[in-house]
Simulated assay, not measured.
Amino acid sequence: MIAPTAALDPAWIARTVAVALDEDLGLEPGRDVTTQATIPPDATGAADLVARQDGVVAGLVVVPEVVAQVAGRLGLPVPTVDQRVPDGTRVARGDVLAVLRGPVQVLLVAERTLLNLASRASGVATHTRRWADALDGTGAQVLDTRKTTPGLRALEKYAVRCGGGTNKRMGLFDVAMVKDNHVVAAGSVSAAIAAVRERFPDVTVQVEADTLDQALEAVAAGARFLLLDNMATPLLAQVVAAVRATADGVELEATGNLTLDRAREVAQTGVDYLSVGGLTHSSPILDLALDLSPGLTGARR
């Protein structure tokens, strides 16, 4: 698990912003034919980054990097970014999240890229907060999955943290997760666990179980983290009770077919986590806007 306060890696932000700008402007330095034709390079101004919906913001940390890279490509001064709220803040429609001041060309060229990243992250954070609120007081936490947008996993998992959720594994490299196809290939749950421990003894092993028998087999083989997959609430409660009676220190995660409507019901079975792929694969964006203030200064044509 990643610490809830873990920040985004600045090197990752720089790489991701560069790719996003290449996509929007063409290969470096690229161009914005509309902005560069209509706005003099010496025109300066200010713009408000504004929430158009209630929600939880995330991804504001990328904004300075976007405007800095755009300024570098255009050969213009870097705008200042006065961030008014930290990532993870609940905001209301109309709240100003940041004020940007500097060359208007830079502000307008950077607009869509910074909005795409911050709106996407804020949508994930807002969705996650709904789950975290639904689980409040139950002792269970909401987990994300690997069902992320290619290239944006770090941002989306950061957004989950901002929304009050918990990251599970970052990829295939840091945690072993024995699922049904691995069991088929290895011959049994026990054989799959043994194979992972022999080849990669340093990693945590998690095991997916669809039935009570599979869960108990995994625990007997030494598994200390079980994914209880697609279980109806009565079966889930039965499995939790049986595992707790059999071994201490086993972490239990409910996964599959979870909805906000049954979140508390599932949590009350005694599981430690609810794993929700929809946090990252189905969250709508939070609508954000960059509103340029009227009146430019220093403009010459």
Score class of each variant (00 low, 15 high):
residue 25 L to M: 15
residue 25 L to C: 06
residue 26 G to A: 12
residue 27 L to V: 13
residue 28 E to V: 14
residue 30 G to Q: 07
residue 32 D to G: 07
residue 32 D to C: 08
residue 32 D to A: 09
residue 33 V to P: 09
residue 33 V to G: 05
residue 33 V to M: 09
residue 35 T to Q: 07
residue 36 Q to D: 14
residue 36 Q to C: 03
residue 37 A to P: 03
residue 38 T to Y: 03
residue 40 P to S: 05
residue 40 P to L: 06
residue 40 P to Y: 00
residue 41 P to E: 08
residue 41 P to K: 04
residue 42 D to T: 15
residue 43 A to W: 05
residue 43 A to T: 02
residue 44 T to H: 12
residue 45 G to I: 03
residue 47 A to S: 12
residue 48 D to N: 05
residue 48 D to W: 03
residue 49 L to D: 03
residue 49 L to G: 11
residue 49 L to Y: 10
residue 50 V to S: 10
residue 52 R to Q: 11
residue 54 D to K: 05
residue 54 D to E: 11
residue 55 G to W: 01
residue 56 V to D: 09
residue 57 V to D: 02
residue 57 V to L: 08
residue 57 V to I: 15
residue 58 A to C: 13
residue 58 A to P: 11
residue 58 A to H: 09
residue 59 G to I: 12
residue 60 L to W: 08
residue 61 V to H: 02
residue 61 V to E: 14
residue 61 V to D: 13
residue 63 V to S: 02
residue 64 P to F: 01
residue 64 P to L: 12
residue 64 P to G: 13
residue 65 E to D: 15
residue 66 V to H: 04
residue 68 A to F: 03
residue 68 A to D: 08
residue 68 A to Q: 12
residue 69 Q to C: 09
residue 70 V to M: 06
residue 71 A to I: 07
residue 72 G to E: 03
residue 72 G to H: 01
residue 73 R to T: 05
residue 73 R to K: 05
residue 73 R to Y: 02
residue 75 G to D: 00
residue 75 G to R: 02
residue 76 L to W: 01
residue 78 V to H: 04
residue 80 T to A: 11
residue 81 V to A: 10
residue 81 V to W: 01
residue 82 D to H: 03
residue 82 D to V: 08
residue 82 D to M: 06
residue 83 Q to L: 11
residue 84 R to C: 09
residue 84 R to Q: 15
residue 84 R to L: 14
residue 85 V to N: 06
residue 85 V to Q: 05
residue 86 P to G: 07
residue 86 P to A: 13
residue 86 P to L: 01
residue 87 D to K: 09
residue 87 D to P: 07
residue 87 D to A: 10
residue 87 D to R: 06
residue 87 D to I: 09
residue 88 G to I: 13
residue 89 T to P: 07
residue 91 V to C: 08
residue 91 V to I: 15
residue 92 A to F: 12
residue 92 A to W: 10
residue 92 A to P: 08
residue 93 R to C: 11
residue 93 R to N: 15
residue 93 R to T: 15
residue 94 G to L: 06
